[in-house]
């Protein structure tokens, strides 16, 4: 469950997010669409507590982060960050750790999970995505698609309430592969929430339950996927969809 209230973020008098409000129920997959440079990635960064903001509050599950808490290094911030996992566009796997190390590092170090147990769980996930044979390789030895799977598993291994994906369809398209989609669907189905930022409306149209269109630093409209694609209420949404070749 995600609740965003009046979220405002500025950097040196440039407003990146202006009074953003959003409500997302558990079990849902939200796609965020819109032209680039309109604050989609900034929204994700705020959502997982990596970027401080000036006004408003964000609630993920049972944890709320208010603007004044988003800057200070405090227990509130650490706990809030654990609520969501993020997969960056360029993945940023840990180059000095193996596949297994990438996935088990946080559970072992942060949660104190015994290493053997963390590895067992990691291998179960790896098998689900069919890359268990790569578990002792280093990230650079993997293909782009394999790297992305590892990055997703790294985030999921911490068992977050929300999974955030930033432009997952950019390079190769493992997101189109059934096992990854299946894994994310399954994740959502067990009461979690997924937020995907993507320029590919076509991909999201077949995957997300809901879509949010982000215009200049604000959410213009948000609706069920089918509804938004077929009956966009705002002319800006309509224009964007038109230019994307849909509608």
């Amino acid at each position: 469950m995600i609740t965003i209230k009046g979220l405002t973020k500025t950097i040196e008098s440039t407003t990146l997010l202006n009074n953003v409000n959003l409500e997302l129920a558990p079990g849902r997959i939200l796609g965020v669409i819109g032209p680039s440079g309109n604050g989609k990635t900034t929204l994700l960064m705020c959502l997982c507590g990596l970027l401080p903001f000036e006004k408003g509050s964000i609630t993920v599950g049972d944890r709320t982060l208010r603007a004044e808490q988003s800057e200070a290094r405090s227990e509130t911030l650490w706990m809030f960050r654990k609520k969501s996992g993020i997969v960056f566009q360029h993945l940023h796997l840990f180059p000095h750790l193996t596949v297994l190390g990438n996935i088990t590092e946080a559970p072992v170090q942060v949660n104190g999970t015994p290493k053997a147990e963390a590895e067992r769980e990691a291998r179960a996930l790896l098998e689900k995505l069919g890359i268990d044979q790569h578990r002792n390789k280093f990230p650079e030895e993997l293909s782009g698609g394999e790297q992305q799977r590892v990055a997703i598993l790294r985030a999921l291994a911490m068992n977050p309430e929300v999974l955030l994906l930033d432009e997952p369809t950019s390079a190769l398209d493992p997101m189109r592969s059934d096992d990854v989609r299946h894994l994310l669907k399954e994740f959502a189905a067990t009461g979690h929430t997924v937020v995907i930022v993507s320029h590919s409306v076509r991909f999201l149209s077949g995957f997300a339950d809901q879509l949010a269109f982000m215009g200049r630093s604000e959410i213009i409209e948000m609706n069920d996927t089918k509804e938004l694609l077929e009956n966009p209420s705002d002319p800006r949404t309509r224009e964007f969809l038109h230019r994307s070749g849909l509608n």
Binding site: G49, L50, S84, A106
Partner: peptide, 9 residues
């Protein structure tokens, strides 16, 4: 960022 997002101090 990745380390922080995984809950590391």
């Amino acid at each position: 960022h990745v380390a922080y997002s995984l809950g590391m101090r």
